[in-house]
Structure formats: C-alpha cells, structure tokens
Design a protein around this nucleic acid. Structure first.
Length: 155
DNA sequence: GCCAACGTTGGC
DNA sequence: GCCAACGTTGGC
C-alpha cells in the first residue's frame, strides 16, 4: 500500500531545482540524524511512496514540489566522512547508525507556503503543522496528499 | 539573532 | 532509570 511523506530539505543544500537537475532527478536524502525520521525511512517507507518536497530554514518555507521514494534503504555515506557536517564519529561502516533512501523529484510546483498550509482547515491535522513538530520526515495521510496534490497539480 | 520545543547526553 | 544541562530545529 502506497504511503505518503513530507520531507524537509534546506534549499541552500538541495532545492527542488537541484533535485530535478540531478542525474535521473534522483538525490540521496543525506543528513537525517534523528532516530524517528530514520526509522520512518527504514521501516515504513516503500519504493514508490509519494513525497511532498518541503523547503525549510529559508525565507519562504513550504511545499515546493512532488517527489517519490526511489530506492531501498542504505547507509548514509556522509556519516563516515570526517569533512562532512553530518559526520558521526560514533558510527562505523560495519555498524552504520544512519540510513537514507534516494528520492526522485517528479515535478516542481508553485510554493504552497507554510502560512497557506496553516490557513487551510482541512490540513490542520498534518503532523508537520503540529505545535513543536521538528521532524524532518513526517507521514502524510492519503486524504491530505489528495488535497495538496490536487491543489498543486490542478488548482 | 531570538527562542520555544524537543531530543540527546551523561552523571548519579 | 532519572533528570538537569546542553544541543538542535526551524519559524519568525
């Protein structure tokens, strides 16, 4: 059964344009250093799941495009790179702590801003909108996915 | 740069 | 296992 996700990326690091410009429009979702978000990728995601590509920590935070989970889970190579800001000295290649999946960008959309998301009563239950929510990967219900993609693709 | 909210660490 | 201190996220 297809599931849906919202995945945050800082556009300074990897914007929807960057992802679309990558080979096969596919990027490894590096840098997740939160166990709950990691576990979503490891245990709950499946290839083909829908992804709302969200721009965070930027002047205009919000959903910027549609993407899809494009690979099985595998170790995040940045955890082993001492020069990477995501380096984790407590991790090792034979016992990797951090995992990722590849994400394939499908379409850049208009920016559906965080303010607009918050102004939409039908989306009030979205995990990402909950008070104090900081997770960089959150599940999205089928109904919320339908509403948002309909608005972005047809609206 | 501020700060609320949450996660992680480490001493006990 | 508790919990205070500290670190991080991310909108504003």
């Amino acid at each position: 059964m297809t599931a849906y996700w919202l995945m945050k990326s800082e556009p300074d690091e990897c914007s929807i344009d960057d992802a679309l410009g990558a080979p096969q429009a596919t990027v490894p979702w590096t840098g997740v250093r939160n166990y709950q978000a990691r576990n979503f990728m490891r245990d709950a995601m499946q290839v083909g799941d829908g992804v709302l590509f969200y721009h965070s920590s930027c002047p205009e935070p919000g959903i910027a495009g549609i993407a899809r989970v494009a690979s099985d889970v595998y170790p995040d190579p940045t955890q082993f790179d001492p020069k990477s800001p995501y380096f984790d000295p407590k991790s090792s290649p034979d016992k990797p702590r951090w995992l990722l999946r590849d994400v394939k960008a499908e379409k850049k959309t208009r920016l559906l801003s965080l303010a607009e998301l918050r102004d939409t009563p039908a989306l009030a239950d979205m995990v990402v909108l909950q008070r104090g929510s900081r997770l960089s990967i959150t599940p999205v219900s089928a109904e919320h996915w339908r509403l948002i993609t309909q608005e972005l693709l047809n609206g």
